[in-house]
Simulated scan of single mutants.
Amino acid sequence: MTRILKQFRDDENGAAMVEYSILIGIIAAASIVAVIAIGGWVGSQFTGLCTKLNGTGLNAAGTGVGKC
């Protein structure tokens, strides 16, 4: 019985799993923040481009009568 209790006390597998779970959570949160930030930047770039084109773009035929 004493041997089993010592093994249980010395077992660190659960602690390592918790540490890896926290690390994965931090990486996931950072990834989500990066995707949101990049998405906002790309959206503003397209909005700026549309503004520079004065609301008109090229349609499939290339005649310049399309809309943003």
Rank of each mutant, 00 (worst) to 15 (best):
K52I: 05
T63Q: 12
R9P: 00
K6C: 05
L49F: 09
G55E: 02
Q45L: 07
V18K: 14
I24N: 04
M1K: 06
Q7T: 10
A15D: 10
E19W: 07
V18F: 11
L23E: 15
I24K: 10
Q7N: 14
V33P: 01
E12G: 07
L5V: 02
L53A: 11
K52R: 10
N13C: 10
I36R: 00
E12I: 11
A16T: 12
I24C: 04
T51V: 06
E12N: 13
V33N: 00
G40Q: 01
D11E: 11
F46H: 05
T51W: 02
T2G: 06
L58W: 09
A28K: 04
A16F: 14
G39A: 01
A34T: 00
E12A: 12
L58Y: 13
N54C: 01
T51H: 03
V65E: 13
D11S: 08
I26H: 10
Y20T: 15
G57I: 10
K52Y: 06
L23K: 15
G64A: 03
L53K: 04
K6A: 11
N59Q: 08
C68R: 03
A29R: 02
L23N: 12
T51A: 12
G48T: 08
V35K: 01
G66T: 03
T56K: 15
G66E: 05
G14L: 13
I38M: 00
G25V: 03
D10N: 15
L53G: 01
D11Y: 08
E12Q: 14
V18R: 15
F8Q: 15
L5H: 03
I36G: 00
I4G: 04
G43N: 10
V33T: 08
I26Q: 14
L23T: 13
A30M: 09
W41M: 08
G48M: 06
I4W: 02
L49E: 11
G55R: 01
I24W: 03
I38A: 03
L23P: 01
M1N: 06
Q7M: 14
C68G: 05
D11Q: 09
N54S: 10
I36L: 08
G39T: 00
I24A: 12
I24T: 08
G40Y: 04
F8V: 14
I4T: 07
A29I: 06
V65P: 01
A61K: 12
L58F: 14
A28L: 10
I27W: 00
C68W: 05
N59F: 06
I36M: 04
M17V: 14
T47P: 00
K67D: 07
S31N: 04
N59M: 05
L5Q: 06
T51N: 09
F8N: 11
V18G: 04
